[in-house]
Design a binder for these strands. Structure first.
Lengths: 248, 248
DNA sequence: AAATCCTATTTGTCCTACAAATATAATTTT
DNA sequence: AAAATTATATTTGTAGGACAAATAGGATTT
């Protein structure tokens, strides 16, 4: 087992080899992985190196390990690693805008799936959420209601991965609202043009199972973001600076 | 620094503390992180534990480290961790279908962004791809062309994260085509209904900057998947089994 | 002032040791 | 003989020491 660490570290190398083995052998969830000492001998590295590599896979949920019982391949939650990376403060403005774009696209794009799946009870639930939304005027609770509404929609789409993904994006959205100074301008601009489509305006399309109407309504509902993204892409600057304060 | 490892391992605990610190202090890319020994002392754990935790963050791109220069926070590629987890053989059928659904939704949903951004040169490029596609009849190259076309579309959307995401999904799509026995049925069913929309059928809508038409065309282009997803969600079985062969 | 060398620091790797958990084998009890 | 108990061995989790490689920063020489 030579060809060690061509460029990166031994840990990177071992990690890639283990992943490669799992993929190439088409190992399924439950398949056993050799213990740490065996792997260390096989790859001719120290046990620490193997442990670091395995620790990474363990974090992603690719493997599981329990004392004395050894390690097995496991089915990861595909969004688990993603979550740790979604820190708006470390992401570039560009990446954040890209994520915004994905959220908007997903919501518009899943229209036909939503319409196909939605039941009358689902619609009743949505109406309830909207009713609460209208009753309370507080801005902060508004965000919670916004979330409740969209979560319900994704749940109708019957897509847990998408639900997880979009749930992780909520803090990113919040961050844009609170920290991107130029965003508020767009918010007010769109308001002035009175193109605002609220949740309650969307519901009729769901009731009529009108895919195109629903799609247009959602698009208008998310208009602010679409405009903001379009505008930002032109400028395409970075809003990211380094900082060397003492944090720990 | 008590409250050690309530439930998980020390490594999990330290990992979460470091991530927490980075988030709560709003540390930006470039901010310095204490060295391994300091962290070990701070959290009252061995250096190995700290190293494993840091190794995980390093893998995700959350931090970078160079000998003697210490470690700094860095901007991760948000899709880097995702990539390692996307092994169709370990994912459940349900998750794979969810991913299919996301791909389809993204492609339909980014229509307005695409139409807004696309230039005449982009359209010429797409025509070139389609021309090649028509010239060659081989199935295998077809997949490459399929990829080239969609990659170009996402590139027009000017969204690198989405491009990365969908690029990672390509092997998953391939897997569905090759390994989900019931998928071929749908393929042929849709073909029989002659609802097939090819890439060349899509291009006119782009030329006319017709968002709705484009959206419908893309939806039809991906009809197989929509139907397949809808059908599978009804059954919602698992197609995942354990396997204990010797792989290493 | 510039170039060179030296030293201290920090990450990367290897190693040994032991605790905790637990699967398996050995022993005792019924 | 079967069941329950105990003992043993194995494997992961953690700690800590040692050293190599790289290199930032200071000391020395040119």
């Amino acid at each position: 087992m030579n060809n060690k660490a061509k460029n990166g570290t031994l840990v990177d190398w071992v990690e890639s080899l283990i992943i490669k083995t799992i993929k190439e052998n088409e190992m399924k969830s439950g398949a056993e992985i050799p213990n740490e000492m065996e792997l260390a001998e096989k790859y001719e590295v120290g046990r620490n190196v193997v442990r670091e590599a395995l620790s990474r896979l363990r974090m992603l949920g690719i493997i599981e390990s329990r004392t004395r019982r050894g390690m097995v391949v496991s089915e990861p939650n595909v969004m688990y690693g993603f979550q740790k990376v979604l820190n708006p403060h470390t992401l570039s403005r560009e990446t954040i805008l890209n994520l915004l774009g994905m959220r908007v696209s997903l919501e518009i794009g899943c229209a036909s799936i939503v319409i196909n799946n939605i039941t009358d009870e689902d619609i009743e639930e949505l109406k309830l959420i909207v009713a609460k939304e209208n009753a309370i005027k507080s801005q902060k609770i508004d965000i919670e209601m916004e979330r409740a509404f969209h979560t319900k929609i994704y749940r109708v789409a019957n897509n847990q991965v998408m639900l997880d993904f979009l749930d992780l994006l909520i803090p990113v959205f919040k961050f844009v609202n609170e920290n991107f100074e130029d965003f508020d301008k767009f918010n007010q601009l769109v308001k002035r043009q009175s193109r605002i489509v609220r949740h309650k305006d969307i519901i009729p399309y769901l009731e009529n199972r009108d895919i195109k109407g629903y799609q247009l309504a959602v698009e208008d509902h998310l208009r602010v973001y679409l405009e903001y993204i379009a505008d930002s892409q032109k400028k395409n600057k970075r809003q990211n600076h380094t900082d060397k304060k003492l944090h720990f």
